[in-house]
Design a binder for these strands. Sequence first.
DNA 1: GAACGATACGGAGCACTGTTCCGCTTTGTC
DNA 2: GACAAAGCGGAACAGTGCTCCGTATCGTTC
Lengths: 184, 184
Amino acid sequence: MPPRKRSDAVRNEQTLLAAAAAVFVRSGVDAPIREIAAEAGVGMGTIYRHFPTRADLVVAVYRHQVESCAAAGPELLAAADSAFVALRRWVDLFVDFLVTKHGLAQALQSDDSGFASLHAYFLDTLGPVCHALLTAAADAGEVRGDVQPYELMRGIGNLCIGQADERYDPRRLIALLLDGLRWT
Amino acid sequence: MPPRKRSDAVRNEQTLLAAAAAVFVRSGVDAPIREIAAEAGVGMGTIYRHFPTRADLVVAVYRHQVESCAAAGPELLAAADSAFVALRRWVDLFVDFLVTKHGLAQALQSDDSGFASLHAYFLDTLGPVCHALLTAAADAGEVRGDVQPYELMRGIGNLCIGQADERYDPRRLIALLLDGLRWT
DNA sequence: GAACGATACGGAGCACTGTTCCGCTTTGTC
DNA sequence: GACAAAGCGGAACAGTGCTCCGTATCGTTC
């Protein structure tokens, strides 16, 4: 069996998660590693030891929220009158999550190697949920059946990139996209 | 009247444009300034003197193509049977332009100060064209009338971000978006 | 074609960031 | 208390944007 972790390591990991969460809010998920290290009061080596890539840190910080979003999918499907409504509500949750995390949508598309596994994590966790909603809506004849979960999620993520202002509300365009999904 | 420009300055500006075009193809519009300088065989100071910000260089390299895209708008409107078809064709041109310039769509959304004026240039040049197409289609009752050119262009630009592959074709989602535009 | 002021050039230098690496410290155990 | 293993800190290196100024080149004037 693996040896128990040292108490200082456990403590530092928690400290780091809290610090990263605070810094992400303040400076976005692209914040300099040094800034997170300073916020946590640890050295940079400590961050890299616990979270070898930036994606690991981002995933750790947002894991609960992502999983909660994943869990909401089946619930919405069971509760809503139509599968399309469930899909729309789930997309709302997804969008709410993305737009409140500065730079996260951008990071999801970044080809920066430090973010490589972020893409994969989101896809693995939320992809099946999106697939279920999409399939249900397609089976009910509420949306066309030739759209894949991957492209829908990526499209939605892309539409969330950039600072929203009074001239650009990602939700408006995403609503348009979902309308386009329906039989024409 | 302003004094004539020095011949070496004129020559260098042309050399730089050619070099930048080549490097943008190879390494994207985010390529290091040093790489462009090396390609052109000039010092970095020379680049910054001619093109103070990266956006200036990008605009200079792509000016002709952007203007040609802008010019196509009215022509398509005059030639096509319906305003919606004209809009769709124009969007195709816009998308073709964006997806063939690695990193350009990303740059358009970047809040990096070096790209700040790029956004403005695209908006100034293509915004009115998009507005005309959108208005014509709305007047013909072919699309809803509550969508602004800015949000449409930005949405399309966003959908073009990231490497297209067999799982993600920006054109598919943009077609969906345009379909959503017709929904009343 | 020589001299000269204006213009432009080159690249060293600074600031900032990601990432690695290794000597030092802390922890848990005996 | 002593010891090995685990963990820590931050100096150091590499890549990049951008500035600044000594030097080189150009165009003009005589």
